[in-house]
């Protein structure tokens, strides 16, 4: 049964949350026995900016190129979800399955070509 197998993921998930907490709690214990310095001040808790105090908000408007890359990624990720079931059964099927997938990938390759042509993939 599937649930039983995936129960092990759940177990490993709990352990993997505990794993990084171990050194962090060690660090916390060092602060408890006054072995780790803890005297924060305004200069220390300011963000790192090469010694100059940071002005302005952090968010500036980023270039749309980032969004275009994410867009291409989403489209291809969905394509992957369709292609993996095909890949599993590919060797058991006859030749005509090949044509079906060729159409599918061809349409998406056209999308890639479109993005290429209209310079969506250009990193300025």
């Amino acid at each position: 049964m599937i649930v039983e197998e995936y129960f092990r993921v759940f177990l490993l998930l709990i352990l993997s949350i505990l794993f990084p907490l171990l050194p962090l709690s060690g660090s916390y214990l060092f602060s408890k026995i006054n072995y780790r310095p803890f005297n924060s001040n305004d200069v220390k808790s300011a963000i790192y900016e090469c010694g100059v105090e940071s002005e302005d908000i952090t968010w500036r408007q980023f270039n749309a190129k980032y969004f275009l890359y994410a867009l291409g990624f989403v489209i291809f990720d969905v394509e992957v979800i369709f292609l993996f079931p095909w890949a599993v059964i590919h060797s058991e099927q006859s030749y005509d399955i090949f044509l079906k997938v060729a159409i599918f990938v061809g349409v998406l390759a056209f999308g890639l070509l479109y993005a290429w042509k209209w310079r969506a993939l250009e990193w300025q």
Binding site: L21, P23, R36, N39, S45, A46
Partner: peptide, 29 residues
């Protein structure tokens, strides 16, 4: 472990703490 832990005053404290812990989850799973 002995080093002083500095948290920026303007930081989003919750996500700032969660990120280094959570990055282990995919790496181990």
């Amino acid at each position: 472990m002995q080093k002083e832990v500095l948290v920026p005053a303007v930081a989003d404290k919750l996500l700032f703490f969660i990120a280094p812990v959570a990055i282990f989850i995919p790496a181990i799973l």
